[in-house]
């Protein structure tokens, strides 16, 4: 029984109530993953499981058994992640508390768009989705920001997306 977290094998906690978020923050001191509600309503706790964005507050740690979890610390990895640089450049943060969740979500979102996955606002569901400012806003709507860094966040994501397709 183990969860792969940022490449390391971590034992599943004994107490089944422990959320993935709790495991990360309290037991592993990976406090880059934030907690804004514990209700599935803010996105601050977003991490990647097998590359897909999920909420670690509503994921019990045991559910992640045998799966691979990447947190903001893992995204930073060797060097700085392009999104992280772009967030700084475009001032896509103020207090910085929603930021790791926004970055993890954005990382997965860009892959979703690249795979052509549609969103609620995609006009033609049958065709591959295209990346527009409005698409990014809809797809990032699961990540709340109370400081109001929305414009900078979207700018940062669009810049990284543009660099990738360039």
């Amino acid at each position: 029984m183990a969860i792969r977290i940022n490449g390391a094998e971590i034992a599943v906690p004994d107490d089944a109530r422990v959320s993935l978020l709790g495991l990360l923050r309290e037991q592993l001191h990976l406090t880059g993953t934030k907690v804004g509600c514990n209700q599935g309503a803010c996105g601050a706790c977003t991490v990647l499981i097998d590359g897909e964005r999920v909420l670690s507050c509503l994921t019990l740690a045991v559910q992640a058994d045998e799966r691979s979890v990447t947190t903001i610390e893992g995204l930073s990895g060797a060097g700085s992640h392009k999104l992280q640089d772009a967030f700084i450049e475009h001032d896509g943060l103020q207090c910085g508390y929603c930021t790791p969740g926004q970055i993890c979500a954005a990382d997965a979102m860009l892959r979703e768009i690249a795979a052509g996955v549609p969103s609620y606002i995609t006009a033609d569901l049958a065709a591959p989705a295209r990346l527009t400012r409005e698409e990014v806003r809809e797809r990032m709507s699961g990540n709340l920001c109370r400081c109001g860094a929305h414009n900078g966040i979207v700018d940062a994501i669009l810049q990284v997306a543009a660099e990738r397709t360039a």
């Binding site: 406090t31 610390e73 700084i88 910085g96 930021t99």
Partner: peptide, 21 residues
């Protein structure tokens, strides 16, 4: 100028009150 605390925040290394071991 970009905010000085940016790097600590985007990497998740900035420690908030509930994060002090």
């Amino acid at each position: 100028d970009s905010r000085l605390d940016g790097p600590a925040k985007v990497t998740g290394l900035a420690r908030f009150a509930a994060e002090v071991p």
